[in-house]
Design a binder for these strands. Structure first.
Lengths: 157, 157
DNA sequence: AAAGATTGATCAGTCAATCTTA
DNA sequence: TAAGATTGACTGATCAATCTTT
């Protein structure tokens, strides 16, 4: 079933990523929802606010680096705001802009949820790879996480 | 550079998978939609039918191994059927069951779309990893794709 | 005119309830 | 009663159009 041709190796690794993502993501999202009542899209936003200076970011900044929602950040922030975990504030000096600010409730639920989420990942995902394999995967996929260009890509300047 | 604590190595590899999936998947799905007018969920169903005996499967079989839709196979098949790529047929001997059968149009679009899709993956994903890295990722994530360990050590033929 | 963000319309996915047959 | 599949109601995501401010 697999493809042994050397020039198709990338297909096996791509399929592995697709399957691993589908299976682990689904399981841990269910667990998190049952535990904290929030989804991974919430975590993504709350976590970026949590790590930001003054625990706030503009809509545009949230939108740009989002993994999940590509155009619907307004709607997502609506829901998080309705849950009480963020609030919108005006940007001094630019009345078009909106700051999204983490509330104390948001900080609290994030810190609880991220712990639960990491425990879920540790349980569902961690035991399926050896330490060497984890290291190899982390290294191989590093550039996607940190948005560096491929090693031999031309550098624009 | 990365998180060097041994007990957190799995987090880096998990994050890598999440990010790689998000970025590659989104890009290749866009390309496929523009080229063939079908989504990767269509490809998933059409491909399994394409590889099945008599190019047909029951709803239940489609549902079980599906990566994407966990309860909504009826709706997905509705759309694929409306596009003319599959048709429903009754199962002889069990009037509860439904066969989903690949049509000639479905076979044609699948064979065209899967080629385009693989070319897209080769362009978007393949160059970002070395051959060694592809091999390591494919090997590490093998168990998610197949529900068994890899047939043997990395192939060197 | 362009940037920042929201809105409306639409499409896709999910869960429980339902219907038919075994 | 249970299995196989569909339906209805709801939640989420996406795209173009819109509104306000620069």
């Amino acid at each position: 079933v697999t493809n042994k041709e050397p020039d198709r190796l990338w297909w096996d690794s791509f399929r592995g990523i697709i399957f691993a993502h589908a299976k682990v993501f689904h399981a841990v999202e269910r667990d998190l929802m049952e535990h904290s009542g929030i989804s991974l899209t919430f975590i993504d936003v709350l976590g970026r606010l949590h790590d930001a200076p003054d625990q706030q970011l503009r809509m545009q900044e949230l939108q740009q680096e989002s993994l999940f929602t590509h155009g619907g950040m307004t709607r997502l922030v609506d829901r998080i705001e309705a849950a009480g975990y963020v609030r919108r504030e005006s940007v001094p000096g630019d009345r078009r802009g909106v700051f999204v600010v983490l509330t104390p409730e948001g900080k609290q639920i994030y810190e609880s949820a991220i712990q639960k989420h990491q425990a879920d990942v540790e349980r569902e995902f961690s035991p399926r790879l050896t330490s060497e394999q984890h290291r190899a995967v982390a290294d191989a996929l590093w550039s996607f996480w940190h948005d560096e260009p491929p090693p031999d890509a031309p550098q624009g300047d």
